[in-house]
Amino acid sequence: MTDQLYQDRIVALAKAKTGAGKLTAPTKSARRDNPLCGDRVIIDVRLDDGGKIAEIAHQVRGCLLCQASASALASVAVGRNAAGIEKVRLDAERAIGREEGEAGEPFAAFAPVRSHKSRHECVLLPFEALKEALS
């Protein structure tokens, strides 16, 4: 084997399935598809009066990286507004080498994706769906 993309931490994030499922009464929902690979993410959010995420759920039909990213995102999303989610996205982009700087947790786990450019969108797709849901 030549590399270790699927390191234990990424596999563990995917298996944790944090936030997997649907909300019964979401404030907003959004679906994003990656037309190149067919991955699909649906995100439901319930927002509080201040526009912060009170509850989040996701349905991912996609690869392990997309599942792990959605799971990691759900684990830190509650209490954040759109600007707060952008900060989390910066962590994800730092982890995969699209932005300079050190990635914070939990997205530091995605560092092995850095050299696999064709998989970067797998990590970012949940962010795209959440951004749309929060727009």
Partner: peptide
Amino acid sequence: VHPHDVAQTLDSFGVAVRAGH
């Protein structure tokens, strides 16, 4: 296991296949 993850794993064994739709 998602097909892309199968294909990515195969790449690490030097095997090129296609996965997806």
